[in-house]
Structures are given as C-alpha cells and as structure tokens.
Amino acid sequence: MKLVYVFDAYCGWSHGFSGTLREVAARHPDLPVEAVSGGLFTGARRVPIREFGYVQGANARISLLTGAEFGEGYQRLIADGSFVMDSEAAARGVAALRQAAPEQAAELAAALQRAFYVDGHSLSEPDTYRKVAEEAGLDADAVVAAFQAPAAHAAAEADFRRTAELGVDAYPTLLALGGDHPVVLASGHATVDEVDQHLSALRARDAS
C-alpha cells in the first residue's frame, strides 16, 4: 500500500493540510507518499487573484481550522490583486522536486506551500525552487533545470490526467492505493487521528 496525495500548491486548503500530511507520513514510515498536482488554476482560472473575491475569507477559515500560517510575505505578494496563480507552473515545480527526491514528497509539498503562503514567493519563479531545494539539501541546480526543461510541461499534464483517472476533483485529497480501487482517507480538512482511523479500518478489512 502507498499514499497518494493529490493537491495543488496554490490551494489554501492544501496548505492547511500540510501539517496533517507530515504527521501521517511520520507515523507511517512504511507507507510511501506520492505527491500529484491537481491543476486548480489552469486555463480560464489562471487570472489575477483579485478575481477570486473569497480568498481572504477562505484563508481566515483555513487558519482557524488548521492553524496554518498566511505570512506577511504572502500578504504583500497579493496586496494589489494582480498576482496570477498558475497551477501548471507549480505542477512543473512539484515534478522537478519529486524527481530529485521522491521519498521526501510530503516534506517538499509542505515546503513549497510554505514558500508561497508564508514567504510570498511565486511558484512560477525558478528561484523559488532553488530556495526550496537548497533548504531540503537537494541539488538546486538540477531542480531548477528540471523545472525549466520541456519535459516538465509533460510531467504537469501527466499529473492532471492522473488526478482525473483517480477520480479526484477536490483538493487536497489523500488516497490509499494498494487494492483494486483507491480509497479516500481525507478530503479537504482532516486530523491525523481521523486519517489513522481510516487507515486502521482499511488494514483490518484487507486482513479479514
């Protein structure tokens, strides 16, 4: 069995789930975690953030429910409303980091969201991936090169297709994959204990 974490690096609820994901991964080191980008802001939804009037209200609710931080750097970045969240660029970055260290999927997903939601770094900029890679002890030059390579676009599209094939249409979604069908362990907000309860029930079912 492995865990598949379908998220979008520009999704506030995914940012709020980061702590849960890290703790689940820490409690279950026997379960590999795969991170897949969902593609929330692509096509017609790739517009200035001012067009999403609900953002600040949603962020306040996310912070209240999960304790997630929305830092001063992020507030400055979005202050004039012109910033564009481009999930295709973010998915290329996820793919580049995943290629460098697939075993660190949970930590890198959280670090990438922290870079945006706390520090206010655009996920369309190569320097953001350099920073995240350096802090994770990875080869930063290789990560930036992978982010900028033509193959990264194909990797992003492959993630979006995989999301659809898994039947996921809400982010974040944490799946257990091992049997014939993926099993949803969490969608949106969930605590570590709630995820554990689902995992225990699934293991008990598989053992019976």
Rank of each mutant, 00 (worst) to 15 (best):
R203T: 15
G120R: 08
L177Q: 06
D86K: 14
V184A: 03
R130A: 09
A91W: 01
A158C: 07
A58V: 12
A25C: 06
A110G: 11
A110I: 13
H198V: 15
A158P: 06
A158L: 11
Y5S: 10
Q148H: 00
H153T: 10
A26E: 04
A207T: 14
G53M: 02
T191S: 13
T191Q: 01
C11V: 05
A207E: 06
K131M: 07
T128Y: 13
A133P: 03
T42E: 15
E125N: 13
R205V: 12
T42M: 02
Q148N: 14
F116S: 10
V4F: 14
A155Y: 07
S208K: 15
Y5K: 06
E165N: 12
V192P: 09
A204G: 14
L112P: 09
A91L: 02
F147E: 11
S37Y: 07
A100G: 00
A109S: 11
L123F: 00
R76D: 10
P32F: 10
A204C: 02
F41R: 05
F7L: 13
V55I: 03
M1T: 15
E51R: 05
A190C: 11
Q56H: 14
A158W: 05
A101E: 08
F147P: 01
A149W: 01
L112M: 10
A115W: 03
E107Y: 01
G57S: 13
Y171M: 12
A164H: 13
H15L: 12
V47A: 08
N59V: 07
A170L: 02
A109M: 10
C11H: 03
G12S: 12
A140I: 08
E34S: 07
A190H: 07
S87H: 08
G81D: 08
G179I: 00
R61F: 07
E88M: 15
A89L: 12
G57I: 13
G67W: 08
D119F: 05
A149N: 00
A79K: 14
S124N: 11
Y5H: 12
L177G: 01
F160S: 09
V143N: 00
R130L: 08
P48F: 09
D86Q: 10
P32T: 06
S14M: 10
